[in-house]
Simulated scan of single mutants.
Amino acid sequence: MEIQLIDPDNLVTFTPSTFILQPGVNTITTTILPVNGFTGNASINIFINGTSYDRDFNPIPCLYQLRVYIPRCSVSPSPLLKQFEKKTTDTGINIHFSPNPVTNEATLSWDVDFSIDQYQLFDIRGQLLTQQMLTSNITSTKISMEHLPKGVYIITLWSKMVFVKYLKVIKN
């Protein structure tokens, strides 16, 4: 059965948001990214939407609603996040993705004094399309999107296993 996590209030995005469940017990893991100014410290509605099948393979729609408390993103940020915030405000760390919109290939680049060691590319439904580990001594990388259909994509950036930022990318 395929299920999709949905936030009807558009306060968060799930990456990934779509999962294939096998018969029996399943464990799913997702990253919740706040959007539209949401910072946490509130309960949100999450819908799990899917389709099951009876013995004759007739579809049975399934919809479950969960009320989940999302804590404030970080009351006491990790030293890496404090460093990132300081660089963002004090020295103006720059993370660029260009061109955006992209047709075939784009360049992701960042300041020399900051390390991005992984990026993930998700489609708008939250399905992971590409995950790339990066060497620590680079300040840019090429991302090929020529094989992807036109649409909106999300790139998440990570430094030392800590989420740093996400970028919205448009593919023409």
Results as ranks from 00 to 15, higher is better:
97 F>N: 04
53 Y>C: 05
171 K>M: 05
72 R>H: 14
17 S>Q: 09
128 L>Q: 03
18 T>Q: 12
169 V>L: 00
100 N>K: 08
31 T>H: 11
158 W>F: 10
29 T>Q: 13
5 L>F: 01
44 I>A: 01
32 I>E: 01
129 L>T: 03
28 I>L: 10
82 K>N: 15
12 V>A: 01
14 F>R: 03
114 F>W: 05
44 I>V: 05
54 D>S: 06
154 I>L: 14
69 Y>H: 11
110 W>G: 03
37 G>D: 05
42 A>S: 09
114 F>Y: 05
169 V>D: 00
129 L>N: 09
8 P>E: 14
100 N>W: 07
53 Y>M: 08
61 P>R: 05
51 T>P: 02
37 G>I: 01
135 T>P: 13
3 I>S: 01
59 P>H: 05
9 D>T: 10
74 S>H: 07
42 A>D: 04
87 K>S: 11
124 I>G: 03
165 K>V: 04
10 N>I: 10
102 V>A: 00
6 I>G: 03
106 A>G: 02
78 S>Y: 04
93 I>M: 07
29 T>P: 04
112 V>E: 15
134 L>R: 02
106 A>M: 01
166 Y>N: 08
137 N>H: 11
69 Y>E: 06
120 Q>T: 08
138 I>H: 03
149 P>M: 08
15 T>D: 06
87 K>D: 13
22 Q>M: 05
37 G>V: 03
121 L>R: 02
79 P>A: 07
14 F>T: 02
61 P>F: 08
87 K>R: 11
79 P>G: 04
146 E>M: 07
113 D>P: 02
131 Q>P: 09
156 T>P: 04
7 D>V: 04
93 I>N: 06
126 G>N: 00
45 N>G: 11
127 Q>L: 11
75 V>E: 10
37 G>C: 00
18 T>E: 09
27 T>V: 14
34 P>M: 01
148 L>H: 04
53 Y>G: 06
166 Y>T: 05
71 P>Q: 09
125 R>N: 10
122 F>Y: 06
25 V>K: 14
56 D>S: 15
66 L>A: 12
5 L>W: 00
22 Q>R: 13
73 C>D: 12
78 S>H: 02
98 S>P: 08
127 Q>H: 08
52 S>K: 09
125 R>A: 12
39 T>W: 09
75 V>P: 06
29 T>C: 10
81 L>C: 12
21 L>G: 01
158 W>I: 07
70 I>L: 05
62 C>S: 14
103 T>Q: 10
150 K>V: 15
122 F>D: 01
3 I>T: 04
85 E>G: 14
9 D>C: 04
67 R>H: 14
31 T>F: 14
111 D>R: 07
3 I>Y: 02
12 V>W: 00
